[in-house]
Structures are given as structure tokens and as C-alpha cells.
Design a protein around this nucleic acid. Sequence first.
DNA 1: ATCATTTCCTTAACATGTTAATTGTTGCTA
DNA 2: TAGCAACAATTAACATGTTAAGGAAATGAT
Lengths: 143, 143
Amino acid sequence: MQLPSTSRSLPIALIRAREGVMAPIREMLSETGITEQQWRVLRVLAEFGKLDAKTLADRSSLLFPSLTRIAATLREKGFVTQTRDSKDRRRQFIEITANGQRIIDERSPQAAQIVANFQATLGAENYETLLDLLAMLDTGAHD
Amino acid sequence: MQLPSTSRSLPIALIRAREGVMAPIREMLSETGITEQQWRVLRVLAEFGKLDAKTLADRSSLLFPSLTRIAATLREKGFVTQTRDSKDRRRQFIEITANGQRIIDERSPQAAQIVANFQATLGAENYETLLDLLAMLDTGAHD
DNA sequence: ATCATTTCCTTAACATGTTAATTGTTGCTA
DNA sequence: TAGCAACAATTAACATGTTAAGGAAATGAT
């Protein structure tokens, strides 16, 4: 059994694809002063509403220590609020603010355009195939 | 134009797929004391031989500042050597050492087994399709 | 009730990602 | 040849990834 050439390595291909996809998104976000991960958290909050930190981390595909820092940053910027659960005081709820929602609303069209460009590049059918194949590699998605 | 649900977001799907693929590889590497990126650099050096830093960064899919730090770490561990180009003293050449090669030789079978498992999960045909689609997203690959 | 365990979250430590500024070297050119 | 643009590499600064340790609160067993 032998390793494939690095040019056909799955981990490297995933990194490069991600880089290709994220480059225009990062460029778009640079005007807003928030990072890719902060954008991801805001998007999840905009989609699902108030969430406890654990669920938020899971749906944002972030490790918990990362989320702790990102939530602190977003709170300082006034884009989210954090409140303790009165029933279980270990828990925190995180919610997007009006200012946070404004970021999402203002930039969503551009983000959607970027996604549409990639869909067009691959073709709609290939695009769906790709998402399905990627999901098969996500071993944590058994739910 | 609207953003897809985060569950069908291409960037998030790429992150999760990468996480799924890398988890067993990281586990394997944890026994060796080197990181995923250090492993990647050693693999490229093992495949292509002595390389200048720029080419090495490119083939390892690393940004230059990252490579600077990783090369320093690998040099301290005795897995690579760095030499200046006598003709152009700005340039550095980086080469794998016998100890570095030993890491590759010892762990390649396990790494290949992990890759083979993912190939089996997806099926050989899907696996090739996936690599092709990922390559189409890599906008930096026009060479 | 008490204590060990579990759970949620934070903090710490180190490595990498990312962008920008800086240093040293080469090459060009006026 | 003096000066400037271009290039290779490093360093800096900040954010995130990753693993481990720690603290506070809830849970469960005895």
C-alpha cells in the first residue's frame, strides 16, 4: 500500500478547494471587519435564532474554545448578546443583535453571488454531487 | 438571490469533510510528535527531493510565513536541513534528512490505510469524481 | 445529604492561518 | 554607479485550530 502523490491527496485537495472557495468570501468580508468564522457564527444565529453555546459551536463547525473567543469578540463589537440560562446556570444563550443582523442582510447578496459563481463553474448537478460526497466524509454527521 | 442553509453551505461542507478526513490522520501523527502540516512538508520533500522554499510552500499548500515557522521547527527536530543558494543568496533550499525520511517510511503504511478506508467508503469511482470536482474549485491551479 | 461523576464553559499553551511591515539581496536603469 | 523596483525570506500582530487542564454547576449513586 502506497500513499498517493501529493497532487492527488485528499486532504490537500480539500485544503486547496477550501482556499479557492474562501478567497473571494474573505475579500468580501474584509470590508466588514469581521472574519470568516465570525461571519459563520452570525449566519447560523440568523438562521436558527437564539442558541445555546454548545449547539452554536456544533452548527458553526467550531471547536468550543474557538467559539468562546469568537463570542467574546462579537459581543465587544455589539453583534451578539450572551445570557445565562436561569434553569441551568452553566449554560449560555447567544443571540444576534440588530447590528449583527444588519451585517448579514447587507452582505448576503454578495455572498450568494459568490456561491452562485461556483455553482455555475461546476454545474448544478456536479455541485449537488460534490456536497453529497463531502457529507459522506463527515464522520461526525450521524444524526 | 439567497444564501443556502448552512447545512448545504459549500465552505462549511469543506470544513467538515476535512475534519472527518484529518481526524484519523491526526490521531496517527500524534504518536510521532509532528503535526499535520509538518507531515505534509516532509511528504512533499520525500516526493520531490530538495526544493527551494517557495516551491515547497506552494506544493505543501502553505503560506510562506507558515512555512518559515514549520521549517524552523523541523530543522530543530533534525528532520530537514536548510542551505542558502550560493548563486542567489536570498534563496533557501530545504532537504529532508535521513531521520525525516524515516518518519515518512514508518508511517506511510498507516496513512495509506486511512486513505484506502475513505476510498472504500466512497467507492473508487466517487473518490476520483470527488478529487476532480475539488480540483475545479482550486482557482490557483492554472498551471 | 455527600461525594464522585458528568456537563458546560473558560483558560492556557502551542501551532498554524492571514495580512502587513521589514530586512537583505538582486537586477534594472537612468 | 547610484538609486529604485522587484524578489525571497523573516518577523510581527492578531485570529483561529487543537489539546489539555481547570472551574462552576448539575446529576447520580450510596
